[in-house]
């Protein structure tokens, strides 16, 4: 019961309070990419959840080896990228073998979808905060859902911006960044302090 409570607490914390995009500013470029492709969002969020869960399970027993190393800033990301590579290869061959129709469409973006900042960030944050296994899995899933939540909120805002008389020099990336900054400000009010990384 305690584990279930801990899991959901970690998940909700990562989803709202310590949102990966608004509070930690991770995965913003990929988020802007997905706002233009809303149909891929669900597929990507599920993939992100699967990759962070499996990579978290594999990487958790191994990270203890490099925690106290002088080069942990380099070894921990290298470790997680190696784990993500294993997960990517497994996903690549499984989708190619069992879902060849999906592979045509999905295979091209699978690499970019697995190896990006949101995925690595979802693995590095629980590691740097030294969460246990349940916390790592819960936090990873919460971060994935939080990423999807951020994409929905920002894409909705960008749609609204089309009705505003945005000055010419602010159209496009400038106003999108300012909008994202103001949303982050709102979520900062919930946290109240800069989160450690």
């Amino acid at each position: 019961m305690t584990y279930i409570f801990q899991f959901f607490t970690m998940m909700l914390t990562a989803l709202f309070v310590e949102n990966i995009v608004f509070t930690r500013a991770i995965g913003t470029s990929w988020m802007f990419y997905l706002t233009k492709r809303p149909k891929e969002l669900l597929r990507y969020v599920l993939l992100l959840m699967a990759v962070t869960t499996v990579s978290g399970l594999i990487g958790y027993p191994l990270r203890g080896i490099v925690y106290n190393s002088e080069f942990r800033h380099v070894l921990i990301p290298l470790l997680y990228i190696a784990v993500m590579a294993i997960v990517y290869l497994a996903a690549y061959f499984l989708i190619k073998k069992f879902l060849p129709d999906q592979f045509e469409h999905f295979g091209m973006t699978l690499g970019a979808a697995v190896f990006n900042c949101a995925t690595l960030g979802s693995l590095l944050i629980p590691s740097s905060e030294r969460l246990d296994l349940i916390g790592t899995i819960g936090y990873g899933i919460g971060m994935s859902l939080g990423f999807g939540f951020a994409v929905i909120m920002v894409s909705y805002g960008l749609t609204r911006l089309e009705y505003c008389r945005v000055p010419k020099i602010f159209r496009g990336i400038p106003i999108a960044l300012i909008y994202l900054g103001l949303l982050s400000l709102a979520f900062y009010g919930l946290v109240g302090h800069q989160l450690p990384t």
């Binding site: 500013a25 602010f170 496009g172 990336i173 400038p174 999108a176 103001l182 982050s184 900062y188």
Partner: peptide
């Protein structure tokens, strides 16, 4: 200004300055 949300806002203004210079 060291907080992430101000980072986004400042980057937005820098991008607007680039657009202005390009124009």
């Amino acid at each position: 200004v060291k907080l992430p949300f101000w980072g986004f806002i400042l980057l937005g203004f820098m991008a607007a300055i680039i657009n202005w210079v390009k124009d």
